Simulated assay, not measured.
Amino acid sequence: MWKPILLILLMIFIGVVGFHIIEGWPFLDCLYMTIITIFTVGFKEVKNLSPQGRIFTIFIILGGVGTAIFTLTKLGEILYEGGINRFLRRRKMEKKLKSLKNHYIICGHGRMGKTVRERLEEEKLPFVVVDNNEKKLLELKQTYRCLYIEGDAAQEEVLNKAGIKKAKGLAALLSSDADNLYLVLTVKLINPSLFVLSKAMDEEAERKILQVGANKVVSPYKLSGLKIAQGLIRPTLVDFMDLIIRRKELSLYMEEFTVKRDSDIVNRNLSECDIRRTTNVIVVAMKKPGEDIVFNPSPDIKVETGDTLLVLGDKEAIDHFEKSYLGGIS
């Protein structure tokens, strides 16, 4: 920012000193003559110029006018990027935040929060990031690649701004278990039906976070330890599950669907639906409300409202399954 300003001040200094030495004018006259020359105002000279003064003025015009244009251009860019452009982008972001629905809220943009954000970006799902640490949001501020809110995620005002009443799910990934506990409690008071997933570093905290209303709690250390153990015992299985989760190197997808009241699959057993033949999708598991998940469910099991189906197939097959049995793509 300072380079353009220092450059124009240098040109003014050279002009004032030059006119003073060549013409012998007072300081004010030299400054006035330099300013109207550099900025091409076109006012009449203070006094008649000598031949040497005219030659010097030509050089001031050639160097000073270009410098003035360069300086004003740079200052305009700085003003636009630092103020006007930021204001316009912020206004645009606020409009998008107000129109959000069926989105996800990521509370905390640390290492876990960043990983969750990147995955949601890959899935092209709507989301907003909330964090009160300016450094953690620096990348998002510079690129404006996604919606974000700088503020305390546990504050009701901030959560309402993030559209908590219209959200589909919330991830509580703050730095401490106490913060996540308070966040989950606040969220459930505002929107009791919202699906909330929280992280917990301590087993006692995990139990308390579940008690205040979290739908699911993940312990990063426990999860990592289990994965390492499985990697030692069943490395091929772990590789396969990683492929399913990442979806980058494999054309297969695994999706979960909640059966609604108006779904064509309601009150029919799996053998009646003949899902595998009609859509080329495999029902890997089923979970009924309040019961444990059942893997490789029996063909005779009846599908009812509120059941969750875990299906495996390519994207086209899964889309066909959703359209055919669940009433279209949401």
Rank of each mutant, 00 (worst) to 15 (best):
K3Y: 14
K3R: 08
K3M: 08
L7I: 09
I8S: 08
I8Y: 03
M11G: 00
G15E: 06
V16F: 02
G18M: 11
F19Y: 15
I22V: 15
I22F: 14
I22N: 10
G24V: 02
G24P: 07
F27T: 06
I35M: 09
F39T: 14
V41Q: 02
V46R: 05
N48C: 00
P51N: 05
G53K: 03
G53P: 01
I55K: 11
I55T: 13
T57S: 08
T57A: 10
V65P: 01
V65D: 02
T67R: 02
A68C: 09
I69C: 07
E77D: 11
L79V: 11
G83R: 00
F87A: 04
R91F: 06
M93P: 01
E94G: 01
I105L: 10
I106F: 01
C107F: 09
G113I: 03
T115D: 11
T115E: 15
V116Y: 13
L120A: 06
E121I: 15
V129T: 08
D131L: 10
K135E: 14
K135R: 06
K136Q: 13
L138P: 00
L138E: 14
T143Y: 07
I149N: 06
L159W: 04
N160R: 12
K161I: 10
A162V: 07
G169Q: 02
D179N: 15
N180I: 09
V184S: 09
L189I: 13
I190F: 07
P192V: 15
V196K: 04
V196E: 09
L197A: 14
E203G: 10
A205H: 05
A214F: 11
N215Q: 04
N215L: 01
V217A: 12
L226N: 14
L232A: 14
L232S: 08
R234A: 13
R234L: 12
L237G: 03
V238W: 00
V238I: 15
F240M: 13
I245M: 08
K248Q: 15
E249Y: 09
T258A: 06
K260Q: 14
S263E: 07
I265V: 13
S271H: 15
C273F: 13
D274K: 10
T278Q: 15
N280P: 00
A285N: 01
M286Y: 03
K287F: 06
K287M: 07
G290D: 09
V294T: 11
V294L: 07
P297E: 06
S298F: 07
V303H: 00
T305H: 07
G306S: 12
T308H: 11
T308S: 13
L310E: 05
V311T: 13
V311C: 15
G313V: 04
D319N: 12
D319W: 05
H320Y: 07
H320M: 05
